[in-house]
Simulated scan of single mutants.
Amino acid sequence: MKRIATVGLMVAALGLSACSGLNTKEQRMLSGGAIGAGTGAAATVITGGCVACGAVVGGAIGTAAGYLYHEGKSN
């Protein structure tokens, strides 16, 4: 169990290190995707659906929303 936790922590740290140096549009898209994935997963847990499917669909919608939000702010 300790080994799995260590590997998970290392993967999370490496994943977060890739987020440095993002411009505003990329930050908004990443935030939207993360929020959307979490919301989609939570919604499918409540409704009894496929959690992975809900996370993927929510992430895609959140990423698109982050992009659209950026485009609306830049005009």
Rank of each mutant, 00 (worst) to 15 (best):
R3L: 11
I35L: 15
C19Q: 14
G48S: 12
V11C: 11
G33C: 13
G8T: 08
G8Q: 04
G8D: 03
L16P: 03
G21A: 05
V57E: 01
V11D: 01
C53S: 12
L9V: 12
L22H: 07
A55G: 11
G38A: 07
C53N: 07
G38K: 01
G21W: 07
R3E: 11
M29L: 10
T44D: 08
G48Y: 12
R3M: 07
A43W: 09
A42V: 12
G33A: 15
L16D: 04
R3A: 12
R28P: 00
A42Y: 12
G15K: 09
A34D: 07
L14P: 00
L9E: 02
G54W: 01
C50P: 05
T47N: 08
R3H: 09
A64I: 13
V57I: 15
L16K: 03
V51L: 07
A12S: 10
G58I: 08
V11G: 05
R3D: 08
K2C: 02
I46K: 13
G15Q: 08
A55H: 03
A64L: 15
I4T: 15
I61F: 08
A13E: 02
C19Y: 14
M10V: 15
T47C: 11
R28W: 12
A41L: 11
G36H: 06
V7Q: 04
M10I: 15
L30T: 14
M29A: 12
S31G: 13
S20M: 07
A12D: 00
G32V: 06
A34P: 07
T39W: 05
Q27R: 10
M10G: 10
G8P: 02
G8E: 05
A55Y: 01
A12P: 01
G62Y: 08
A52D: 02
I46Y: 13
G8M: 10
G40R: 02
A18E: 14
G32K: 09
K25Y: 05
R28D: 00
R28Y: 11
G38S: 01
A52R: 01
R28S: 08
M10E: 06
T6N: 04
K25V: 11
T63R: 01
C19K: 11
L9T: 13
G38F: 05
V56E: 00
A37H: 06
L30P: 10
K2H: 11
G36W: 04
C19N: 14
C19W: 12
C19T: 15
T6Y: 08
S31I: 14
C53V: 14
G40H: 02
T24R: 10
G32H: 10
A5W: 12
C53H: 05
S20Y: 09
G15V: 11
G36C: 05
A60H: 00
G49S: 10
G8L: 13
R3C: 00
C53P: 00
I61Q: 00
T24P: 00
T24Y: 04
